[in-house]
C-alpha cells in the first residue's frame, strides 16, 4: 500500500472528502452507471423472485424428492459468496456450456451479473416465501379440504393470497439487499456506478472526493429504500386484516 501522506488527522483531506464538485462534474457518466445498477437489480430481482417461488413450491411439495432438490438448491445458493459465484458464472459457465453444447458460448458481463445475483438471491427469496406459506394456519387449509377443494385450488385461492401479504416486507428487505449486492458487478467489467467511479479516479487521480461521494450516494439511496420498506411494513401491520 502506498504510505499515507499524513501521520495523523488531516483537515485538508477531510475537506476533500466532502468536496462533491468532482462527482458533480462527472455526474452524467456516473449516474448512467447508477442506472446500470438499477437495471441489473431489476432483472436479477425478477429472476430471484421467480425462481425463488418455484423452488419454494418444491420445498413444500408432497414428494420427498422435490423437497430434497429444493433444500439442496437453497442451501447451495445461500452458502455461496456472491463474488465467488459471480466470477464462476462469468468465467467458468460459458466454457462449460461451450463444451456441452459444442458451440461457442460467451456471456456478456451484464448477463453474468443478472444470472449470478439472481440465482444467489433466489435462495433467500425461496426461504422467505416458504416461511410465508407455512405461516398460514392449518385450519384454513382444512376448511378448504372440507369443502372438497383440491390442492392446487387451495394453494391458489387460500394460501397464496394470504401468504403474499405476509411475505412482502421480508421480500422487500431481500430486494434491498440485492440492490446493495449489485455494487460488485463492476468487478466483471459491468459499467455500473463503481466501475465508472474507478475509471474517473484513475483519470483524475482524486480518490478522496470521488470514493467518498460514491459512498454517500449509495448510503443515501439504500437508506431511503430501507426507510421506505420500513414505513410500508408499519403501515401494512397496522392495517391488520387477519
Amino acid at each position: 500500500m502506498p504510505p499515507p501522506t499524513t501521520a495523523g488527522f488531516d483537515f485538508e483531506s477531510l475537506r476533500q472528502v466532502f468536496d462533491f464538485s468532482y462527482f458533480w462534474s462527472y455526474r452524467e457518466v456516473l449516474l448512467s452507471g447508477l442506472l446500470v445498477n438499477f437495471l441489473v437489480f431489476g432483472f436479477a430481482a425478477l429472476l430471484a423472485a421467480g425462481s425463488g417461488f418455484v423452488v419454494c413450491l418444491l420445498r413444500v411439495s408432497r414428494s420427498r424428492a422435490a423437497r430434497g432438490i429444493g433444500t439442496f438448491y437453497v442451501e447451495l445458493f445461500r452458502n455461496t459468496p456472491e463474488y465467488v459465484f459471480l466470477t464462476w458464472v462469468h468465467f467458468v459457465l460459458p466454457l462449460v456450456l461451450t463444451r456441452l453444447l459444442v458451440t461457442r458460448v460467451n456471456f456478456a458481463p451484464t448477463l453474468s451479473a443478472v444470472l449470478a445475483l439472481g440465482l444467489c438471491y433466489s435462495g433467500y427469496f425461496a426461504e422467505t416465501f416458504r416461511t410465508g406459506i407455512l405461516s398460514i394456519p392449518r385450519g384454513h387449509i382444512d376448511a378448504g379440504r372440507a369443502v372438497a377443494m383440491g390442492r392446487a385450488l387451495i394453494m391458489r385461492r387460500i394460501i397464496l393470497p394470504q401468504a403474499i401479504r405476509r411475505v412482502l416486507p421480508e421480500a422487500l428487505n431481500n430486494s434491498v439487499s440485492l440492490f446493495k449486492a449489485t455494487s460488485i458487478v463492476s468487478l466483471i467489467a459491468v459499467p455500473d456506478l463503481m466501475y465508472n467511479v474507478v475509471n474517473v479516479v484513475q483519470y483524475e487521480m482524486r480518490p478522496l472526493p470521488l470514493y467518498s461521494s460514491a459512498a454517500f450516494l449509495f448510503f443515501a439511496i439504500l437508506f431511503m429504500l430501507s426507510a421506505l420498506v420500513q414505513a410500508l411494513t408499519e403501515r401494512w401491520r397496522t392495517r391488520a386484516w387477519g
Binding site: 385450519g139 384454513h140 376448511a143 372440507a146 369443502v147 372438497a148 377443494m149 383440491g150 394470504q162 401479504r165
Partner: peptide, 24 residues
C-alpha cells in the same frame, strides 16, 4: 385418488372449532 375423495367430500359439510373462515 384425491379427486375421488373430493367428489364425496362435496356431500359432507364440516364446521370447525376455530371457525376457519378465510380472512382475505
Amino acid at each position: 385418488s384425491l379427486a375421488g375423495i373430493n367428489r364425496i367430500r362435496m356431500d359432507i359439510g364440516m364446521v370447525f372449532q376455530q371457525f376457519n373462515l378465510w380472512p382475505h
